[in-house]
């Protein structure tokens, strides 16, 4: 499923809404999650999962093409942990 298919499904379920309105809601939803993560926070969606960030320490990496050693700076990376219900949903049969 891609974003446009999600928009289409939401449109079918909400015929009273204009497609632009649905698009705004979907964009705001993902934008708010992204913004919260960028600010260092978490987003917990019960049943679906939790978005958070984790620290990665600086390390020595290697350019896979040249084999050259490069310093990789410490950074924060996004992290997602599926919720219990989600894990069950995926393994139902």
């Amino acid at each position: 499923m891609i974003r446009s298919e999600l928009l289409q499904k939401l449109g079918e379920g909400n015929p009273e809404l204009r497609s632009e309105e649905i698009e705004q809601v979907v964009d705001l939803f993902f934008e708010e999650i992204a913004r919260q993560l960028a600010e260092g926070g978490r987003v917990e969606l019960r049943g679906f999962g939790t978005f958070s960030t984790r620290e990665r320490e600086a390390r020595q990496g290697r350019n896979p093409r040249t084999g050259e050693t490069v310093e990789v700076d410490a950074k924060r990376v996004p992290f997602f942990k599926p919720g219990k219900e989600m894990r069950r949903l995926l393994n139902e049969d």
Binding site: M1, I2, R3, E5, L6, K9, L10, G13, N14, I22, V25, V26, F29, F30, I33, A34, L45, G47, F48, P78, F80, M86, L89, L90, E92
Partner: peptide, 27 residues
């Protein structure tokens, strides 16, 4: 509306489909 977004994503995942939201990421 938020619940519907999550439900549609869950439904696709349950069917074995990956979910790709451009600009955000892929499940």
């Amino acid at each position: 509306l938020l619940e519907a977004i999550l439900e549609h994503m869950c439904e696709a995942l349950k069917k074995g489909e990956n979910v790709k939201i451009s600009g955000f990421g892929s499940f």
